[in-house]
Each structure stands twice: as C-alpha cells, then as structure tokens.
Design a protein around this nucleic acid. Structure first.
Lengths: 282, 282
DNA sequence: GGCGTCGATACCTCCCGGGTATCGATCGCG
DNA sequence: CGCGATCGATACCCGGGAGGTATCGACGCC
C-alpha cells in the first residue's frame, strides 16, 4: 500500500464525501474514485458503502481509517525526524518539548533548569498547545518529548515516566458563595447552575455541541470564570498563577491528575534520554 | 514520502550495497540509485555517504532507517488489520495471540480457558515464535496480542498490563554437582566452565559471534543441557514441563521476570479488550 | 416529472518508474 | 604502474498509471 492511497482513503473516510475529499487533496473527483476502487480491489475488501446520496464506512473501513492515520503519522514522523537529525549534525541539535498551555505549574521551569545543568544538555524549545494536540505532535515527529496529564491525555503508544500526582480544584469567581469553603465534591460542582464547564475545540477546530461557552486557551477560560460565566476543575498546581479575582477550592472526589513525561518509543536520542533522567530526578 | 521510497531506502541502508539491495527488491540497480538520490534531494538531506567502494549511513540516514522501519511496519499493520476486520465481519472473527515457545508455563492455558468462558469470546489462534520476533509480529499486524517477558522483551510502543512476576532458575543436567543445591547466585552460574549459555538467532536468522552452541528452539536448548553442553537461566515456571533428566536450581540474584500481556495501542478491538480483562482477572 | 447532486465510467495525455547500455572512480594485483 | 574487476552514477528509451475533462446513471427533492 502506498502512502498516497492511504492519504486518499483517509481523506474520503474523514469527509465521507468524494467531492470534498478530492478538493481537500487538490485533485479532481474521478481519479479519487478510481484510486479508492483500486485500493478496495487490491485489498479484496469493501471499505466504503456508497449510494449516490451517502457514503458510510464499513467495519473494515473504520479499521483502516484508524490504522491508516497512525501509519501516516509514522511516515511523517520519519521524515521530520530525519530532517531534524540532519540539522542536528550541522547546526543546533535542539529538542522540542510540548505541553499543555497553562498546565504543569512550576514543574516545567524546574525541569528545564535541572536539564540545563546536566553536562551535554542541548537547547530545548518549548511548544505550548491546546488540549488533545500533544499526542498528535509527538506522534508525527513535530515534538520529541511531552508532558502529558493522565487521565486526560492518552499515553497509548508512548514510553512514559510518571513525575507527580496532584488533586484537582474547582476555580470560581472570587466572590462566589462557595469560594470560601474548605473543600467541595464533584456533585457540588455539577450542581452549580449558571456556571457550566466550557467547551474546548476538537483537533479539527470545530466545537462539540452542548451548553457552556467556547474557549480556545487558558487565558480565555480564566477570563470567563472571572466574569461568572463558567467554571472549571483544574489540577492544583494552577493555583500558583491564578489571577487575584479567582478562587480555587479543592474537590475531594475529583480524579487525581498524574503528570507524566512521554516520548515516542524507539527514540534513541541522547537528548531525550537526558531530559527524562533529569525529570525523574526532580 | 511514499512507502516505495521508504522500502527502497531501508533495503539499501540494511545492505549498505546498492547492487544487493536492488536484487532484494527485484529491480535493477540504476533506478534504485536514482530513487535514493531523489529522496535525498527532496528531503534536502544526505542519507548515505558513498564512494565507489563503500556505502555508509549518515546520522540522518540511521534515523530514517529506524523510523522508516517503524513506519513501514505501521503501514503493513494497517493493511493486515483491515483485511482481518473484513474477514471478521463475515466469517470467524478470530484473534491471534503470540508468545515465546516454551515460556509462560501454565499461564497460557489458564488464560485461554478464562477467556473462552467469557460471553462473546472469539476463537484465539496461538502463534509460537522464537525470542525477539513477537514485537515484530505485534507491530506489523500479524498478531493482535502477545505475552511478553520483561526485561527480555521490549514493550516499547505497546499498551501493557502486568500479569505475574517470577524468579529465575538455572537449568542443569540432572547429575551435575550443583544440581542438588538449594539455590545459587549468578556468579556461580557464570563460573560454570564448560557450560556456556547458548546463542539464539537474530531476527534475520544469523547468529551472534561468541562461545556456546547455536539453538533455534527450547527443545534444542533442553537437549543440549541434558547432553551437558550448555546451561540456561529461565523463568521458574519452566519447571512444570522440564524433562526428567534435567534439574532446576533457583538463582537468587537473577532479575525477576515479569510476564505482561501487550497489545498495539489504538486497538479498539472488543476481542482484545476481553482477553486483557480475562488476563488481569486471573 | 424535471432538476440538482453525487459517484462511476470512458477516454486522453503526460509524467515517472523501470529497463539496458555505458561511464567514471577506486581498489587489488601482478 | 597499468590492467581488470567492482560499484555507483548517468544517459536514454519505453510503458504503465496517475491525473484531467466530459459524460453517464442513480437518487432525492421541490
């Protein structure tokens, strides 16, 4: 199977529409139909059920969608890491660390300091991104190592080392009636009428349906909370850089958040190994 | 990057010889040279340093070799799993479990029984293979789930659940002077002159250099031990099916062996999930 | 029942992957 | 030091297949 065929199939499987998929791929629709047909014939498998009005995935098709995306990421990662290895041989080696914007509290600066103090440390670029994007960046080679937060982020397919575990707090406007409490329970939080939890964008940029305002980053989130339009349950460490107009109250029965350092398997990079070593020694 | 280019590069990088690589790929040498040249130009990276007498990998080249192999495995896995999903929709769903021949003691039958008793259980094909092959089979989709043994097998890139941990024993001819001891230490074992540890084949079928006989499977190994030509340190559970002419003595300071059940990440298969659940409940 | 939408088919063109022949560089050998 | 052998690169040709345009056939909708 060629990556071109996989790219074509993934596009159609995601769009469930030959015309739009062709447009996205920058080709005409007929060659795309033909390519998918050839792929199905060669695999001996029906991937798509199509009428002239609708296209749906078969069971096998959804398997190929999932596996194909992973395979394409792996190919892209190979290309990117090769390019970076070539750069490293001449110029700055560099290392890209990805983490969620606003998370990790003071762990990140401590980690960077500890690593920088090691002999043979290389420059570390920090890449901040929204929730759910980190796995993608690690998988397709745009990042070398990341700080993920279980159970929110999936660590499937990565090598992982646990760094720390913390409880969660609910963030409220400073004047909120519950802001003075010593602690709360999840039931109290979900019962907060008029303070819905916000909606984060999906990787493709669209927002899930439902109540609650749409937010794109932590600054927006905190702003909305301060305005009394939303609330959120966040890891404890966010308290250190909370605005003065916000209050945080521990939520006893919220799941504990574990910060882990994650990197792609097979990574033989000396630099990644050093960073991980520094992290575990923190 | 197309998988064809990757396959070509991997062949050359493994052979370090354009002629042989071309032969292996079933094409002539000139198109291969051209393809590699185009790949390098498109990546803007020198992958191979070639004189007319010798070909060597650059730093970037060895990165692409490693990452490219992983990517090719992922593509192959996508293809295989799609085919199997199509079969599952019509005929028997089936599940392929891979484990090392001779290992796992009575864990495997217990696991199979426990899973078979679950509602909705599907047929499980058991695939036995030599050491070091299991990871490959799981990675490229020929197997769905495997029993691996840390620290011998690498679990990098898989989701894993620990099943059990056991000590190791040294297997000796029944009449050996040390066979009556209650326990030994690694130092005692390595000091056994005339009883070297055997050499296992590498994935490519060749054997590493060194002393000790070459073995291909457990039967051969046990035969050689019985003949007084070798010895081996194996997990305790091997005692249950040891021949009467062999003795096993615990080795106190040998690393503990952990049997884990491993499966590819992103695996959404109902059957794999059921098997893992059965395994953890054992 | 006519029109619009959407995927499939027919047919053409041209690029690119693969083949053969050959060159140029390098090493071994007498 | 020169000859031949080896090996990768280059030159050139050919055929298949990827991509384009035009069009068909099926289906839903007003």
């Amino acid at each position: 199977m060629e990556t071109r065929e996989l790219r074509y199939f993934v596009a159609v499987a995601e769009e469930l529409h030959f015309g739009r998929a062709a447009q996205r791929l920058g080709i005409a629709q007929p060659p795309l139909s033909r390519a998918i047909g050839q792929l199905e014939r060669r695999l001996g498998v029906t991937l798509l059920e199509r009428t002239s009005r609708t296209v749906t995935l078969t069971e096998a098709g959804s398997v190929l969608l999932r596996e194909g995306q992973a395979a394409l990421d792996a190919v892209e990662a190979a290309e990117r890491r090769t390019r970076r290895a070539a750069l490293a041989a001449t110029g700055r080696p560099g290392l890209v660390l990805v983490t969620k914007a606003g998370a990790s509290g003071d762990l990140l600066p401590k980690l960077l300091d500890a690593y920088a103090a090691e002999p043979g440390a290389v420059a570390v670029d920090v890449l901040l991104c929204g929730p759910g994007e980190q796995e993608r960046l690690l998988r397709d080679g745009r990042a070398d190592v990341g700080l993920l937060h279980r159970p929110f982020d999936s660590t499937a397919g990565f090598d992982v080392e646990e760094l720390c575990t913390e409880g969660q707090v609910v963030v409220l406007p400073a004047g909120h009636p519950l802001a003075g409490r010593a602690h709360l329970r999840m039931a109290d939080v979900t019962a907060l009428s008029g303070l819905p939890t916000p909606r984060w964008p999906r990787p493709d940029g669209t927002y899930p349906d439902g109540p609650g305002p749409q937010v794109r980053d932590h600054a927006q989130l905190l702003q909305l909370i301060a305005l009394g339009r939303a609330t959120a349950v966040l890891p404890e460490s966010c308290r250190t850089h909370l605005r003065h107009d916000l209050a945080a109250v521990p939520v006893l029965d919220a799941p504990a958040v574990t910060t882990v350092i994650a990197w792609p398997p097979h990574s033989r990079s000396r630099a990644v190994a050093g960073l991980v070593r520094a992290a575990t020694r923190l």
